[in-house]
C-alpha cells in the first residue's frame, strides 16, 4: 500500500498554501491520508497548521538550528533519512521544492517526477514538457520510491478539519557546513495579495512600457484586491522584480480571474496561466497571440482601458 510523505513549505511561521495542494495530490495516490514533515528552527506554528489539514495523518516536526533557512543541502539528507518508511515523497513545484526535491531523489537513488499535474495511478502520473506544448504520462517502477514535485496549480488546497498528531522527529543524518544562508530580499509584492494564491491577478507586459507606468497596474490591483504579475519581457526590461514573473520559468498560477495588459502571449507565458478560471486580455495589437487563448479580449490601449475600468468598477 502506498505511504506518502509530504515536505511542507513554510516561512515567517506560516505554512505555505502549496503544502495543502500537495495534500490533495497525495490523497489521490492514497486516500487514507499522508504524513507531512515540517523542518525548521522553530516550526511549531506551521506544524500545528499542517495538522489541521483534512487528509493529513501525522505531522513530523524536525526542529534544529541548522534548519533555520531552507537550504537544500541541509534539508535533503534529513528528508532522505525519513523517506525510508515511505513509498512516495512529495514536495511543491515552487522554487523551494524545485531546489530541494531533486537532491532528495538523488540521495535515494531515484529519479523525480517534476511538475506532477495529474495522478493516473499510484505510480503513473502526467506532467507537462516543452513549456506545456506536450503532456507525457510517466511510470515509476515498484523498485524505487516515487519522488515528485507537485504542480500546485493543478490541485485545489486541502481544506481544514483535520486533527493530526504532531510528533517530534530526529532523523539521523550528517549535515554539511558548506552552505550558508546570507539574506533574503523581499520582492515587489509589498502589501498586495500573494501572486500564487490570489483569486484575482492583474498582469502587465512589455506594453506597459516602463517601471513608472506599472503604477497604473498597482493602483488598479489595489482597487480590486488583486495580486500583480508580469511577463518575462516586463521583468527582463526591468519594469518589475523577478518574483512577479508568470510563466514556464516563473510562477505557474491558477487565479479565478487573470487580466493581462499589454502582454503579447508567448507560449512560455501562457503555460503559466492555462489553469486560470477566466483570462481577460487587453492589447493594442489585434494579432497578439494572447487573444487565441483569452476568454474575453479587448483590442485597446491599456492606458485608457485601465482608468475606464476603474471608473466602471468604482
Amino acid at each position: 500500500m502506498p505511504k506518502v510523505l509530504i515536505v511542507a513549505e513554510h516561512s515567517g511561521g506560516r505554512l505555505n498554501q502549496s503544502t495543502a495542494r500537495c495534500v490533495s495530490c497525495a490523497l489521490q495516490i492514497e486516500g487514507n491520508g499522508a504524513d507531512v514533515v515540517v523542518l525548521g528552527q522553530d516550526c511549531a506554528a506551521p506544524a500545528a497548521e499542517a495538522a489541521t489539514l483534512r487528509g493529513v495523518a501525522r505531522v513530523l516536526s524536525v526542529q534544529r538550528p541548522e534548519n533555520a533557512a531552507p537550504l537544500a543541502a541541509v534539508l535533503a539528507p534529513q528528508i532522505a533519512a525519513l523517506a525510508a518508511g515511505y513509498s512516495h515523497v512529495l514536495g511543491p513545484s515552487t522554487t523551494f521544492g524545485k531546489d530541494l526535491m531533486p537532491r532528495v531523489a538523488a540521495l535515494l537513488g531515484a529519479g523525480q517526477v517534476s511538475d506532477l499535474m495529474s495522478v493516473e495511478g499510484p505510480r503513473r502520473f502526467k506532467r507537462p514538457v516543452y513549456a506545456g506544448n506536450a503532456i507525457v504520462t510517466v511510470e515509476v517502477p515498484d523498485s524505487l520510491p516515487v519522488v515528485a514535485t507537485v504542480r500546485t496549480a493543478s490541485f485545489k488546497p486541502a481544506g481544514a478539519g483535520g486533527a493530526a498528531a504532531v510528533e517530534a522527529a530526529t532523523p539521523g543524518a550528517e549535515l554539511p557546513g558548506h552552505t550558508r544562508f546570507v539574506e533574503q530580499r523581499g520582492g515587489g509584492g509589498g502589501a498586495r495579495p500573494d501572486l500564487q494564491t490570489a483569486r484575482l491577478v492583474v498582469s502587465g507586459g512589455r506594453g506597459v512600457g516602463s517601471e513608472a507606468n506599472f503604477a497604473l497596474l498597482y493602483q488598479f490591483a489595489a482597487r480590486i484586491g488583486a495580486a500583480v504579475g508580469a511577463s518575462r519581457a516586463a521583468v527582463d526590461a526591468g519594469y518589475v522584480p523577478n518574483d512577479m514573473q508568470v510563466g514556464q520559468t516563473g510562477k505557474i498560477i491558477a487565479p479565478e480571474l487573470y487580466m493581462a495588459f499589454g502582454i503579447s502571449g508567448a507560449i512560455q507565458h501562457l503555460t503559466g496561466i492555462k489553469d486560470a478560471g477566466l483570462i481577460v486580455a487587453i492589447n493594442k495589437d489585434p494579432e497578439a497571440p494572447i487573444f487565441q487563448v483569452a476568454d474575453v479580449g479587448l483590442v485597446g490601449d491599456l492606458f485608457t482601458v485601465i482608468p475606464a475600468l476603474e471608473r466602471a468598477l468604482a
Binding site: I135, V138, F291, D295, V296, L309, A312
Partner: peptide
C-alpha cells in the same frame, strides 16, 4: 532505471473566447 515515459499527448487547448469592443462590454 526509473521513470518510463509511456504516453505523449497534446495539451488540452483553451478555446478562443469572445472579443468585446469596449470597456462597458468588458465590465
Amino acid at each position: 532505471g526509473g521513470l518510463r515515459t509511456v504516453a505523449w499527448e497534446a495539451p488540452q487547448a483553451r478555446q478562443k473566447g469572445a472579443m468585446v469592443t469596449d470597456v462597458d462590454a468588458l465590465v
